[in-house]
Design a protein around this nucleic acid. Structure first.
Lengths: 352, 352
DNA sequence: CGCGCTTGTGAAATCGATTACCTAGCGGTA
DNA sequence: TACCGCTAGGTAATCGATTTCACAAGCGCG
C-alpha cells in the first residue's frame, strides 16, 4: 500500500500557472499589495483559482522569507486546571481572527525550560510567547528578555516587567467577601494559592483589604496549590486553626472540590456549618455537592486581550500592562448561605 | 524602548564559521551523516560551538528543504475533559523523545473543519495528525485520507480505517462490572457516552456482555455527553426508569461528578442507596463526595503509543490498529459498597 | 612515475514565497 | 517626432538548511 500518488501540496506556482500569470503577481494579489496594478479580471481569476485549488502558503517558506511564523506559543502551568480551558479558547479564537495560530505547551518545570525555549523560540516556530506559568525566578523570564522575544505574562504577572495582562483579582475577592458579608458572615477564611504566585498574592490582599474595610473578624488565610489536593489541605488547616470560621473563599473550583471533600470528612456540612465561595466559574462548580457559588471571571477575555497585546508587540508596539476590569459577578448556587443563628461552639466534628 | 539590538538567531553559517569550516560540513556533522568522514577534532569542535551558541536549526528552513516539519498535530474534542490531560502528556513526552513537537488544537466542530485543516495541514505546519475527536461522518476523516496525510485515530477509533489506537474499553467495563458484582450488586446501570462515539459503544457493549455473562439482572444503559451535565442527566434518567438499580457505572470522572450531584438532588445516598464506579482515574475522583471508585486507564500510554504509531507512519510504515491492553485496575474509594441487605422498595426520594 | 582509489571539503542547487528591480507598451506632450 | 510617465506585468535575488556533486590531496600499487 505504499502509495506513489503523493498528492503534493498546491504551490503558489501552481496557482499562478492555472491563472495564467507568474508567482510574484499571484503573491501580490493574494496578499493585497496596494502598490500593484492589475486588471480586475486577473485579480479575480487568481483569487478564484487559489480557492479552487485549496491553496495555502507553505508556513515554512513563508516564515523563512518573512522572518515571522504567524504562530504564538502559549505556555500553561498545568493542563489539569480547567480554568485554562477558557483562557485558551479565548486566545485561540482571537488569534484566529487576527490570522495567527496558537501552539499550546505545558510548562514542565525549570529544568526543561531550556528545552521548551529551544523547541519553540530558538527553532523559530513562534513569533512570540504568552506565558501563563510565570513565577519569580523562572529561567524563561530571563531568556525571553535577553533574546528580545516578544512576550506577555498572562494571568500571572511579573512585577516590573511592564507586560502583564491580568485579571482584577482584588476586585473579585472583594466581591466574594461582600457576598459572604451580606449573608451575615463575619469570620472568613481564604484558601489562597502559593504566596509566590502573583495573582494569588493579589487575591489574598484583596480579600484581607475588603475584610478590614467591612470591619469583619481577623481572617484566616492559608496557602495551598490550586488543584483538588490543595483545596483539601487548605480547608483542613483552616478548620484545625479556628473552628469558628463560618465561610471560606477558595482560589479555584478545583480547590473548592477538595475543600468540600475535606469538610465532609470532618462531618462539617456545607453550607450549614460553613459556607463556600470559589473564584472562577465553570461547569464543575455546578456539579459539586452542594453546587458551589462562584465569582465568574472573564477568562476568555483574558486570553483574547493577551493575544492582542502580544500581536501588537510583535508588530512593533511597546509592551503594556493591562488589567481586565470586566466586572466579576457572583454566580449564586447552594454552597453559601446565612450562617447558623446560634453557631455551635465548634463545628468541628469527629474525623471520619 | 525600540531596541535596535535585535539579537538575531544563530544560523548554521555562524556555527560553521566559528568552528572553522563550511555550512555543509557542519550540517552533516550535526545530523550525524554516516557517510561523512571528518577528523574527530572538527566533529567535536562543531558540536561544541553549536552548543555554546545555542544553535537550533530554523524550523521553517528545515521544513522547506526536508518536506517535513518535525511537528505533529493533536486534535482534541474538548479541552474541558480532564482525561485528555493525561493523554496529551503521554503524547508530548513520547514526541519529545523522538524529537517531534506536538501542536494541540481543539476540534471546534464540522463547520470549522476546513479551517482547522487549512491551518495545520495545508499550511504545512505538521507532518501528521493525531485525531482524538473522530466520529462517523466527520469531514476531517475524508480530507485526511484524500490528501494522503499520515494520521492516527486515538481513543475514538474509526471502524475500518486500520489506523486506530484505542484502549480496551470492553475489558475496563468488565472489570467495573466484576467489582460491583463482587460487592453483591445485581441490578446495574451505565451512563454511556453518545452512541455514535466509538469507545462509548465498546464500553457499553463490554458492560452488557459482562452483565450477561455473570447472569445479573437486565441492565439499564443511557446515553449522555461525557461531562458533568451528561452525568447528571444520565443519573436522573436511570433513577426515573428503575428505582431498584443499586449500582451505576459512568464513562468519565466528570460524569461521576454530575451523577453524584443528581443523586444528591433526589436525596439518594452514595454508596448507601446506589454505588458508583467511574471509568478513568484522576485526582478529581478522589476529591468528590464521596470519593469515587474508578477503573484506572492507561491514558498516558495511549498518548505515547499513538505518537509512536503516527511517527512510524510518517517514516513510511503502513498504518496499524493498536489496542492498549495494559490491565485496567480498580482504584477502590468510597463510592462503591455492598448494596443494602434489605433494599427499600424504591430508593427514589423526593426531589429537593 | 602515473593511474586509480580513498578521504576530506566546499561550491552550487534546492525547497516555496516574497520583494526589489526591471521591461514593454501605451498615450500624451513639447 | 522624441521623450516622459504611467500601467501591467515579469526576472532574479533572498531567507536558512540540506544535499548533490565536483574537486583536491594523499596513498598504494604496477
Amino acid at each position: 500500500m505504499a502509495d506513489s500518488s503523493r498528492p503534493r501540496r498546491t504551490r503558489l506556482a501552481d496557482v499562478a500557472r492555472a491563472a495564467g500569470t507568474s508567482p510574484p503577481i499571484a503573491s501580490r494579489i493574494l496578499n493585497r499589495d496596494p502598490s500593484l496594478s492589475v486588471s480586475a479580471e486577473l485579480r479575480a481569476r487568481v483569487v478564484q483559482v487559489a480557492k479552487e485549488l485549496g491553496y495555502r502558503p507553505h508556513a515554512g517558506a513563508r516564515s523563512l522569507r518573512l522572518a515571522g511564523t504567524g504562530a504564538l506559543g502559549l505556555l500553561l502551568p498545568s493542563f489539569l486546571n480547567p480554568v485554562y480551558t477558557y483562557i485558551v479558547r479565548g486566545a485561540f479564537q482571537r488569534a484566529a481572527e487576527r490570522d495567527y495560530t496558537v501552539l499550546l505547551a505545558e510548562d514542565v518545570g525549570e529544568k526543561q525550560a531550556d528545552e521548551t525555549f529551544a523547541r519553540l523560540v530558538a527553532a523559530g516556530r513562534i513569533d512570540g510567547l504568552l506565558v501563563a506559568s510565570a513565577y519569580p525566578g523562572h529561567p524563561l523570564t530571563t531568556m525571553l528578555a535577553e533574546r528580545g522575544v516578544p512576550h506577555v505574562f498572562m494571568n500571572r504577572g511579573v512585577p516590573g516587567s511592564g507586560r502583564n495582562v491580568v485579571l482584577d483579582e482584588e476586585r473579585a475577592a472583594a466581591v466574594a467577601v461582600d457576598h459572604l458579608a451580606s449573608l451575615g458572615h463575619r469570620r472568613l477564611a481564604h484558601v489562597a494559592g502559593p504566596a509566590e504566585i502573583e495573582p494569588a498574592a493579589r487575591r489574598a490582599e484583596g480579600f484581607r483589604a475588603r475584610v478590614a474595610e467591612l470591619g469583619l473578624d481577623e481572617p484566616i488565610v492559608v496557602e495551598a496549590d490550586f488543584l483538588e489536593t490543595g483545596g483539601s489541605q487548605g480547608m483542613t488547616r483552616i478548620l484545625e486553626r479556628d473552628g469558628r470560621v463560618t465561610a471560606v473563599y477558595t482560589s479555584t473550583a478545583s480547590q473548592a472540590a477538595g475543600a468540600l471533600n475535606a469538610a465532609w470528612r470532618r462531618g462539617i456540612v456545607v453550607p450549614g456549618d460553613v459556607s463556600l465561595v470559589a473564584s472562577g466559574d465553570m461547569p464543575l462548580a455546578d456539579a459539586l455537592v452542594p453546587p458551589v457559588t462562584t465569582v465568574r471571571m472573564p477568562f476568555a477575555e483574558l486570553g483574547a486581550v493577551a493575544v492582542d497585546a502580544l500581536i501588537d508587540q510583535i508588530e512593533g508596539a511597546d509592551p503594556v500592562d493591562v488589567t481586565i476590569t470586566s466586572a466579576p459577578e457572583v454566580v449564586v448556587r447552594e454552597s453559601a448561605a446565612a450562617p447558623r443563628l446560634t453557631p455551635s461552639d465548634d463545628p468541628r466534628r469527629v474525623a471520619r
